[in-house]
Design a protein around this nucleic acid. Structure first.
Lengths: 341, 341
DNA sequence: CTGTTAGCGCGTTCAT
DNA sequence: ATGAACGCGCTAACAG
């Protein structure tokens, strides 16, 4: 059987209460009793039952962390940053990966509520996550949004500046001489997709480039395969683009794949830019022109805001932190090649 | 306040027991009562308290998952695979990232024990993890090792064939004409490092190439910076290697960085191979020659073995699954360039 | 079919 | 300084 506080008490020849006091570092215990309890704890390898503790203390020191795609290096860094901050503060993290599936997100949220997490840090699937997030509020569980905002939401939020970032990327392409610029995006109930599309449009408009509706291709932010298919559709157009702006790095990898299949060289035949650097790839070979975002910082700041709330040390209604991105110009975007009409 | 089973009972006009029966799908409840309970549950947004449940049921449907480096795309896929299998089986995952820190691993294990996880899937830091893993056994919590084995351990294990894989990689380099081949490894209390070093040595010996001790550089499997430093030491040798075998992709990225700093082109001036593909990078630009391992499968199989044990449907003492790797020859390794002595 | 009693392991409250 | 009684929210075992 598992060893309980009573077993320790028996072995130490004291009551359970004294053991409880010792393991919780409370003062009113004789040195003698303390010694014997500590010895008993060590001998039995006693570990206090977190469930029982959580039940009575009404806090578990557990934080729920939900991301749409753990395999995306952006979120992977978010997770690392968040886990690290939580760890230092004495909190542990329960991870939920949604694969952008709304139902899966709902179930994860419910499980986390069931296990009485003290707070939730979440990059929501989309605006449609709103109803299930309200369940958190109803149960008085504080939460903070990262990366994606939700229309009409007014809580804490850590995000990048997608509109400005997209504009910078597209202006960069325009500056290189591109005028036929397509975009690969995802459904517009995701705030980042919405914002990046807007930035793309603004940049075109500012340069007085006529927008082409057939240059907007919808794909997925987690499935490179869909991005590849979307890119192929663009490249097979009668008048194909000379450059593509992919909404994130996963989509960009799909574009690169499509380009290879059509024997188009990047950047000679096709310019390519996207959001979010891929650290490992860039270190291996600095190639992709990106709008780099401080991914790990999304996680650390997000977790800090959350822990503030959990500790009840915050009164303001909704704090928004916007993390600046940075254009990293590399080889994947260059002047468009001459291509016969 | 939080809504409890009693609140539901009151609203539905029944006892708590009846509510319990309904939410657990037990049979002996009248349709009438069931309907009213379900209505009350919906109205109150009742979510059963998992802590209380776990306390009495003696199982939490929670699995602990511990990896050394969540930011490594190999482990990121392991996590995704494992989480996915757990999810389908109705289990949730608590994630622990150790950053190869033994103490952090110990603390994670203790926390997971405290919260009564039903099992633990772990890629241990090193052989030194052994004592803290015994704590799992003491508490009758089943566990499965992934990726790394531990000297003297005899439980379930899912691993790659590091010896053979390393041999294949180094033989590949030799086949291309390289004879001055260095290796970047990590401390040899990690089984994969040990095995890969052994494979490296075997390949050299089979080719009758004299091993050079100054060609073994110790670095880290999680810090590209250390791999870079190690690579610089190798490249600055009076008689530098013409090719480097990095024990994993992170280390390889550090090597590439070092090569750039010394203005050495890969593969023209320096051949580079390593373990573990980087999916995203390879899709973007198939460049690195790797020994690809089915990372996600490490996670799925590992979780399956674990859930077998958790369900108590397994009797064998220790099952070992060895997942085959595959050489993916790409551009980063080629015939050594002519270099003046 | 339904409700009552008891207790999972711990910590709070109040005695002693 | 220490312990006894009670309850956190839920369900197993037993009544009825």
């Amino acid at each position: 059987m598992k060893v309980t506080i009573r077993d320790v008490a028996r072995l130490a020849g004291v009551s359970a209460m004294t053991v409880s006091r010792v393991i919780n570092g409370q003062p009113r215990v004789s040195d003698e009793a303390r010694r014997r309890v500590e010895a008993a704890v060590a001998e039995l390898g006693y570990i206090p039952n977190g469930l029982a503790r959580g039940l009575i203390r009404r806090q578990t020191k557990m934080i729920g962390l939900i991301v749409p795609d753990i395999a995306n290096p952006f979120f992977t860094l978010v997770v690392r940053g968040a886990e690290d901050v939580a760890w230092r503060a004495g909190y542990r993290v329960i991870l939920g990966n949604t694969q952008t599936d709304l139902e899966r997100e709902r179930a994860h949220l419910e499980d986390m509520l069931a296990f009485q997490v003290d707070g939730v840090l979440i990059a929501p699937v989309s605006d449609r996550s709103a109803p299930q997030l309200r369940a958190l509020g109803r149960n008085q569980v504080p939460f903070v949004l990262i990366d994606r905002s939700i229309a009409g939401f007014h809580g804490d939020l850590v995000q990048g500046d997608s509109v400005a970032g997209a504009r910078v990327l597209v202006e960069h392409l325009i500056g290189l001489g591109h005028r036929q610029i397509a975009m690969i995006t995802e459904p517009d109930d995701v705030s980042t997709a919405r914002d990046r599309l807007r930035g793309y449009r603004e940049a075109l408009e500012a340069a007085e480039i006529e927008p082409r509706t057939d240059f907007i291709a919808e794909a997925s932010a987690i499935r490179p395969r869909m991005a590849r298919d979307a890119a192929l559709r663009l490249l097979d157009l009668p008048k194909p683009p000379t450059a593509i702006f992919a909404l994130n790095n996963i989509a960009a990898s799909g574009v690169a794949e499509a380009a290879r299949e059509r024997h188009l060289a990047i950047p000679a035949d096709l310019g390519l830019v996207c959001f979010d650097d891929i650290e490992l790839a860039s270190r291996l070979d600095p190639f992709l022109t990106v709008l780099a975002q401080p991914a790990e910082t999304f996680g650390t700041i997000g977790m800090q805001l959350l822990l503030d709330r959990v500790a009840g040390r915050v009164s303001e209604r909704g704090r928004t932190v916007v993390l600046p991105g940075e254009l990293v110009a590399r080889a994947s975007a260059a002047s468009p090649a001459f291509r016969p009409a």
